[in-house]
Design a protein around this nucleic acid. Sequence first.
DNA 1: GAGTGGTCTAGACCACGTA
DNA 2: ACGTGGTCTAGACCACTCG
Lengths: 259, 259
Amino acid sequence: MSVKRAGQMPVWQQIAGELRQAISDGTMPPGARLPTESELTERFQVARNTARQALTALVAEGLIIAARPRGYFVRDRRPINYRPQQEFMPQPRYLETDRFIAQHSAEGREARQTIEVSIVDPPEMVKDRLRLEAGELTVVRKRVRYLDGEPFNTNDSYFPLDLVQGTEIMRPDDIARGANEVLAENDYRQVRALDEFYVRMPTPEETRRLALAPGTPVAYHVVTGFTSEGRPVRTVLNVLPGDRHVIAFERTRPAQADS
Amino acid sequence: MSVKRAGQMPVWQQIAGELRQAISDGTMPPGARLPTESELTERFQVARNTARQALTALVAEGLIIAARPRGYFVRDRRPINYRPQQEFMPQPRYLETDRFIAQHSAEGREARQTIEVSIVDPPEMVKDRLRLEAGELTVVRKRVRYLDGEPFNTNDSYFPLDLVQGTEIMRPDDIARGANEVLAENDYRQVRALDEFYVRMPTPEETRRLALAPGTPVAYHVVTGFTSEGRPVRTVLNVLPGDRHVIAFERTRPAQADS
DNA sequence: GAGTGGTCTAGACCACGTA
DNA sequence: ACGTGGTCTAGACCACTCG
């Protein structure tokens, strides 16, 4: 290992490059411990801050994690499948818990969620999608889902207040058959949904709420559900950490005359 | 503006917090110039490196950009709609999609793409999805798409070599009616597709190829197309910079007998 | 207690685009 | 030519966790 002062590439990038290479070619597999800052300082004959700059860059890329005082470690990535379409698909009748729990307890991981319900003036993004007038309020069910005790993703579901007034949607409990079914029972069955995905870095608030490691981007998943009359009755804001999810869709060509 | 040494929060985070606040509340709108490092050093009475650490963090969050030597500027975000379903629905009825998202699309923007075709031993990810034996080769069409002269996203389409041997898929030209139609003409019409989205930070290679600003995550979109016999005939690896795309799906509840 | 990374300082010189 | 951010040095002290 050596670095060149005269090169076009800054020293810290050369160091980062060597480490990145060792990670991607398997020399340092997930979970492996990286050299300490002191060791890099010594090995490359640079100031500690220069070695640090290389490591900091890899942290920002999401490749490694700083676990003080044990050192830096190669990150692992074990995403689970996230299938938005599932909520419209027929489900086994014996399922008595909500979608998330059903999907993951089966895999031997302990699923849990917290629920907070409140009545709020919704964010602009929700207002647009639910076509609310200024001042119209919504009921929001804010959930944080945990897997094996670790926060996993968040799900904030907004409903126009007048649609869900007095229903069990307003109670901060699990709804075994799903909030969508409750809406359907109240004559607001959703037949169409629009999914939008925004990819960005998390806000500090999201970083805290989901205990995100530095260098973890999120998918911001916005779902809006419509009745057969085309009325939006539900908007959901999901925050999906990139290191924990792979988003999957399946589509089929609509029936048509063969060519 | 003031920072406290005694607080639990590091000084650089306090500075970053104040700047972040000014950005999110509109005091510094997109395009606005931030204080220089010297100005922050003076205003908060800290070393230049401390002010720098705050700015570097905001760069890594994708909130600001360093445009040397003009200064730091608040980033803008003007994503366009990305609709994977479109390829199966030439004239889709996107009743809801276009309602919300400002369309900077094709209108007035110059679209262009480069195409490279080669025969390669595909990456593992492609091998898995096309169910290839070791050593089986693929044809790959690598495209970089530009909008207004700026690289926008990349699209690498892999086909089993024996399926497309001698077809126009192997020529590095635009295929007006689409590669899928060419496959269909050769008895490999795709009727089903699987979309997978991985959210992560870009590799240095992707950063270069797409001229990504620091702090820009990407969606890695993997599409696999199947014939009616269930044979995979095409796998596409798309890299979609998060600051330039919003991914949109629309779904309808399948017709079903109520149980 | 030892070793880790986290924070912070106070300098230096450089590369680069704009004026 | 000037001012900007980019790189790099050589220190210092701290907080935390592990053995």
